[in-house]
Every structure is written in structure tokens, then in C-alpha cells.
Design a protein around this nucleic acid. Structure first.
Lengths: 261, 261
DNA sequence: CATTAGAACGTATGACATACACAGTTTTAG
DNA sequence: CTAAAACTGTGTATGTCATACGTTCTAATG
């Protein structure tokens, strides 16, 4: 049951690694390193210097051990990243009464968004299967509660949760990377409007009619007050989420007695 | 104007690379390699052997040139990947009459889904800013047309498009990676149900009530006939998209005269 | 006590991206 | 018409990285 073997497919390994309640009474010297400690160090490094700086060597020196000792506890960097991502996710947010469907889901979305804003490196962790870590599943569980409470079936709730997760991730990937470019850029702080301005220079209106229409409108200062400051969802994310919730709401209202699809 | 210089931030470079209409009348020997040819070779390699096999050396030998010659045309692997991703996207699909809002959007979504199914490696190309390549923008343009036709404002259409793109990407990332695990796995072909079965072994019902409820229901064969075969959207993707479209529809109906947010 | 699983370590290997200097080739300036 | 300039393709070199392997030491078990 060492960590230094078995390169079988994947899922089982992730699971045992992520959920390992240390089996008692092993031989050998007492381990001074732990999976958890290693992953926690990885999170610290990623928080401080981004995911590019995250090498096995970096983690090891951070902990004061040799690079290879990590491999006694973790079978590969990929798996380690998976554990780090689960730890990085942290415990799920409190979203209030799940029966209060809409605000509960909105709070969940806002929390995930805030999480990605806090740890942008989590957007870079490649994503190899459905979430299986304890924290990730706890997040999922919290989201499923209001969705089920709203009247969705199990299957529907599951895909709705997937939908929402994907939306937050995708939106964050685009919006937050823009912010990252801002940091490295010395001159102009780039923004949506800047992008629009640059692009319109390249676009031929005949090839991209809708796009040029949208961007020129955007440049004409359609930018509208960024709604309420207390709303933690930016328009970019909130509009889509709200439309989706509208749709879910009316759908459950219409299909109250009906079965699945 | 060589490619062998200027490491300034990012966006401008991507743009000039992606849109470069070869400026005529340069000195030096006629280039035998082109950005396009290189990127096309990259696509071939990725198609055949996945993105892990995609190294600069691999591309170069594929083309019969030395590794370093690539750098005369492409400033870095990251930028090259961006170009390859744009080429891999290909021209946007024909989605029919944009005024026929719903089916048009659905066709677009189905096409993108099919694209990711065909080239799963595109899901692994890191995603550093809003799309700027000619093909990517053409896809975006095609999606914006029905959204605008449906009555959304420019800004709303833009975020709706972002929303839909994110959903397809995210859903594909999870569902298609499952399929990939299937391929490497020798014994059981894993599926949603398998995942459910495995997970329920780990989960404590008290910590994950909603999740266990969903999964046990799923195991009880809630799996329902996979709807129509002619519907190119799997339930996983279609349900969310349809709810979103419902929401958009009712929203534009309600806010016909109103301005933005 | 003797055995043995397992921990930490060092060294080694093989990819890989990319910097740099060189040699050959066209185009343009004088 | 010639010479410099700009550029292409190549070879070699460097530094980083994940990870395989063998060794040594430690502590729990028979």
C-alpha cells in the first residue's frame, strides 16, 4: 500500500489519496511528511507565486526536505495538484436557507467566484474528472440542496449544478486573466473596452457584423452603471446566472407533476 | 518586425501573429516555413497523439526542419498554441436563420460540443484572454447574431455568449474526460453510474445529504431513455442550455422597451 | 532479536523550452 | 553593380523539470 507503485488508470488513486484516513500501524520510520502537509505547502506556493512557480523541488525546499521524499507520499505531481486543488477550495460557503432557492444559489455562485478571484491558480489546475475531493464534493452538495429544494429531479439538479460550475469557471477564466494581464502590463490598464478598441481595428465589418456592432456599441459608452456595489456578482456573471435561474424556475412551475425529460 | 524579439506583454503579439497578412518585400531568404504551416502541423500532432505529445521538437521533425527554425516564425510555444487553437476551431457552423433564435443557438452549441468531441485537446489549451483569432471570433459572431436577433442588447448578448461558451467548455471538460478514462481503462468502461457507485462507498450520508440522495437516485436507474437520438445535445448539456434560453426568452419579453440593466 | 516495510536522500536520466552565435540568402541602398 | 542589412535555417548549450533507482536508516512485527 505504498505510494511508490501502481500506475493504474486514475480514479481509484485519486480517491484513496484524497480520502486517506491514515491506516494505523505501519512499519518503517514514522513519516514526518504527510500528504496534507505537502499539499498545503503547494497551496502556499501557488498562492504566493502562481502555478508556474509550483515545482516539486520548490515544494520540497519549502518544507525543508529533499525533492524525492515527496514521492513517498504522493504518486505524481498531477495527483498532488488534485489534492492541492481540493484543499484550496476550502469548505463550502454558508448560503442560507436552501428553500430560498434563488438567493441561495446566487450566494453559492458569488462564493465560488470570490474563491477564484482569491486563488486564480485554481483555474489552471487541469480538470481530469468529475470532482471527487471532500471539499469539492461539499461545495457540490451545498449547491444541490437549493436546486433540489426548487423542485428539480436528481438528474436535473446534477446537470444544473454542472452548468453553474462551468459558468463560473469559464467566466472567471476570461475575466480574471484579463486582470492578470493588467498586472504585468506597465502602461495602460487593459479592460473590456480596450480589447474592443483594439479588435475593432482588425475586424472587417462585413465578416463580423454582429461582433462589430456589439463592440462599437460597447465603445459608445453603453457601459451602464455597474449596478449595485453590494451585489457580489459582476454583470458578466450575474446576467447569465439570473436568466438560467429564471428558466429553471418557470420550468419547475410548468412541470410540477411530470417525470424526467 | 522579426518574430525573434520583443517579449512585451501579450495581446498585441497574439493579434499580429494571428492576423498577420505577410507583409510583402522583406529581405533575407524566402521563408519556407510559415506560421500557418507550423500551426497546422501542431494541430495534426495534437489530433493524432494528444496535447502531451505536442512539443516543439515534434512539430519540427514532423515538418522536416530543425527545432529552432520554428522560433523564426513563432515567438513562443504558448503563442503557437493560440494559433493552433484558432485553426483547430475551424470555420463556424451554419446555424440557419438567426431570427429563429432558439434552434439557431442550439445548433451553435451542438456544433461547439461536436468540435470538442472531435478535438479534445482544445480543452487543454490554456486560455489566457478573450478569444481574438479569426476563427474564434467568427464563431462568436455567429452566436451573437441570434442573441441580438432575440432582442438582447449588445452587452447582454456578449455576456450571454460568454455564458454559453463557458457551459459547453465546462461540460465537455468533465464529460469528455470521462470518456478519455474509458479508453485507457482496460476493464470496466466507466460512466456516470460507475462514478456514483464508487463515490457512494466513500460518502458519509450525514456530511453529503443532497449528494447521496442524488447519486442513490441515479443508481436506482433514474437514467431515463436518452431522449431522441437525433438531438445532438446530450441531456447533460441540453437541459441547462434550454433553461437558459427559456430565461432569456422570458426576459426579453418582459423588458421589451426598457434599456440596459 | 531478526526481519522487513517503508521513509528520506542523492544521484541520474531524459524531456523540454528557449538563448545564442553562425552560415547562407535575398533585398535594397548607395 | 556592389556592399551592407535583414532575415532564414541550423547546431550547440543551458537551465528547469518530473521522476526512476539504489542506498541507508528506522521502527514495528513475528
Amino acid at each position: 500500500m505504498a505510494t511508490r507503485d501502481s500506475k493504474d488508470p486514475d480514479l481509484e488513486r485519486s480517491l484513496t489519496l484524497l480520502w486517506s484516513g491514515r491506516p494505523q500501524g505501519r512499519r518503517g520510520p514514522r513519516p514526518r511528511l504527510t500528504v496534507d502537509g505537502i499539499a498545503r505547502a503547494a497551496v502556499e506556493v501557488a498562492d504566493a507565486e502562481g502555478i508556474e512557480a509550483l515545482s516539486m523541488q520548490r515544494i520540497a525546499t519549502e518544507l525543508g526536505y529533499s525533492t524525492m521524499s515527496l514521492y513517498n507520499h504522493v504518486p505524481s505531481k498531477d495527483l498532488l495538484l488534485e489534492v492541492a486543488a481540493d484543499i484550496g477550495a476550502g469548505p463550502p460557503p454558508d448560503i442560507g436557507d436552501p428553500d430560498d432557492f434563488r438567493p441561495a444559489v446566487r450566494r453559492w455562485v458569488a462564493a465560488l467566484w470570490a474563491g477564484f478571484r482569491l486563488r486564480p491558480w485554481m483555474l489552471r489546475v487541469p480538470f481530469d474528472h468529475a470532482p471527487v475531493g471532500p471539499h469539492q464534493l461539499a461545495w457540490l452538495d451545498r449547491l444541490l440542496r437549493p436546486l433540489l429544494a426548487a423542485g428539480l429531479s436528481g438528474r436535473q439538479a446534477r446537470v444544473a449544478a454542472l452548468h453553474l460550475t462551468a459558468v463560473v469557471r469559464g467566466t472567471a477564466q476570461i475575466s480574471l486573466s484579463l486582470a492578470a494581464v493588467n498586472r504585468t502590463d506597465d502602461g495602460v490598464p487593459r479592460s473590456d473596452a480596450d480589447l474592443a478598441r483594439i479588435l475593432t481595428g482588425f475586424l472587417d465589418e462585413r465578416d463580423y457584423p454582429a461582433l462589430t456592432a456589439v463592440y462599437t456599441a460597447e465603445l459608445a459608452g453603453d457601459t451602464a452603471a455597474d449596478t449595485a456595489d453590494e451585489d457580489p456578482l459582476p454583470f458578466e456573471l450575474g446576467f447569465g446566472v439570473d436568466r438560467f435561474l429564471d428558466g429553471v424556475e418557470s420550468w419547475v412551475a410548468a412541470n410540477r407533476p411530470g417525470a424526467d425529460s
